[in-house]
């Protein structure tokens, strides 16, 4: 008997409304790209969750690791000048 296969694992991203970003909503199994797209529709948009889908083979995702937290992200902590609140404006200017 051949070894069983349930297909490859895919990542599913759904766009709630046109113009909005695609948000990761879960995973599924599929044997090819068209099937992955259809399965995503049948599994993840049964309750009007979205108007567009991306499916990506999980094997294609490149992820940072937990050890990267320090070197990757903490250096951003002290760059307050990247945020608008860092700058002082004359009181008279209400919006900028």
């Amino acid at each position: 008997m051949n070894k069983d296969s349930q297909g490859a694992l895919w990542e599913v991203f759904v766009q709630k409304k046109p113009g909005q970003p695609y948000v990761h909503c879960g995973n599924l199994h599929a044997f090819d790209a068209e099937m992955a797209l259809q399965n995503a529709r049948d599994v993840y948009t049964r309750r009007n969750e979205g108007t567009a889908l991306w499916v990506v083979p999980s094997a294609s995702i490149v992820a940072s690791s937990p050890e990267d937290i320090g070197p990757f992200f903490e250096p951003a902590n002290d760059k307050v000048f990247r945020h608008p609140t860092f700058y002082k404006l004359p009181k008279e200017i209400k919006h900028m």
């Binding site: 051949n2 069983d4 296969s5 297909g7 044997f31 090819d32 099937m35």
Partner: peptide, 12 residues
């Protein structure tokens, strides 16, 4: 379902 899954692999 085994033959269905095998067919899907072969087709892909």
């Amino acid at each position: 379902g085994r033959w269905v899954r095998e067919a899907a692999i072969a087709y892909a």
